[in-house]
């Protein structure tokens, strides 16, 4: 069994209003923040035989549902 973390983040140059607003709020709380960007993590448990299969399957999931290729990059981390 493998646990896989997938981070879905916005591509460079794509507006990230959630990040911008969070930065603003942190600034108002007195934190000096240079940049904030938002991302999403999906933690997926798979019953596959090896690490390679886990990576392949999750890659397919990203292409079919988890990420939109127009605005998202994704990073797969198998534990």
């Amino acid at each position: 069994m493998y646990h896989v973390d997938v981070i879905i983040n916005l591509k460079k140059g794509i507006a990230d209003p959630e990040g911008v607003n969070t930065k603003k709020a942190l600034g108002m709380l007195g934190f000096k923040v240079k940049d904030v960007s938002s991302a999403k993590i999906f933690r997926i448990t798979l019953g596959v035989k090896n690490k390679k299969d886990a990576e392949k399957k999750v890659g397919e999931m990203c292409r079919k549902l988890l990420a939109n290729p127009v605005i998202h990059d994704y990073k797969i981390m198998v534990k």
């Binding site: 209003p17 959630e18 911008v20 607003n21 939109n68 290729p69 127009v70």
Partner: peptide, 12 residues
Amino acid sequence: NVEAVLTINDSN
């Protein structure tokens, strides 16, 4: 094929 997206409003 996915060629576009409707994403989060600028105003968040």
